[in-house]
Amino acid sequence: MTNTPEQTRAVIAVEDVHKMFGDLHVLKGCDLVVSAGEVAVLVGPSGSGKSTLLRCINQLEEPTAGRVLVDGEVQGYRPEPLPDGRWQKLSSAQIAVQRSRIGMVFQRFHLFPHLTALGNVMEAPVQVRGLSKAAAEEKARTLLERVGLADRADHYPSELSGGQQQRVAIARALAMDPELMLFDEPTSALDPELVSEVLAVLKDLAADGMTMVVVTHEMGFAREVADQVVFMDEGRILERGTPEEVIDHPRSERLKGFLASVL
């Protein structure tokens, strides 16, 4: 880990990341820096590579080229290349440790259907961190209370609404005390009237100083909460800046066209 004296320590540094799926060039050299406590919102049309970029940060996708640093630590490889120039991959156990520091929330929740809300939140602290059941339960109940679901602890995911499921998923990610949180379209699968309850939890987290990267189409949320709005199109980052710069004063025709279609 690096010890940068400035307050704006880079928690995430994505450096010239490319991703190919076969012949399909999904990411064409993306750079992204997110500082501690910063909220970065990725926007862009369908297929622009937002989700892929997000998934590269916690190694659900492996970049074809470029590197991702989290807290100054190269993700997926030893810090230095081998003498012959190749990068030594980390073992799956080492990758799991890197992932455990990054919380992720999915579009379709992916709660564990065979466990209750409480069981979902307790699972990783007990299995990965080795927390005692009692300590994990106490923590899980606190987190469920934080997302407003203390009374739903013993419900199975199938007994919860979409918004409640997504809030349990956020609590599950928070249970690992992550240094940063990734949100992959957290409200896209929700009924419109359930979107606000999930966004409220995100805003609460942002206000608490959590470092966050959010892929979303909620431009209102981006305007209100984002420190940095990043516009992606066809695998490239075309524009980035404050919400005022990007949403209110778009420069490229692509972004103007995109904003016209979503606003």
Partner: peptide, 24 residues
């Protein structure tokens, strides 16, 4: 998605299989 969610939590492959995949 179950495997992905477990991986994102930092669970090892063995634990994902035993705790998440097999019970389902």
């Amino acid at each position: 998605g179950q495997t992905e969610a477990s991986k994102a939590l930092g669970m090892s492959n063995g634990r994902i299989l035993r705790r998440i995949i097999v019970p389902q």
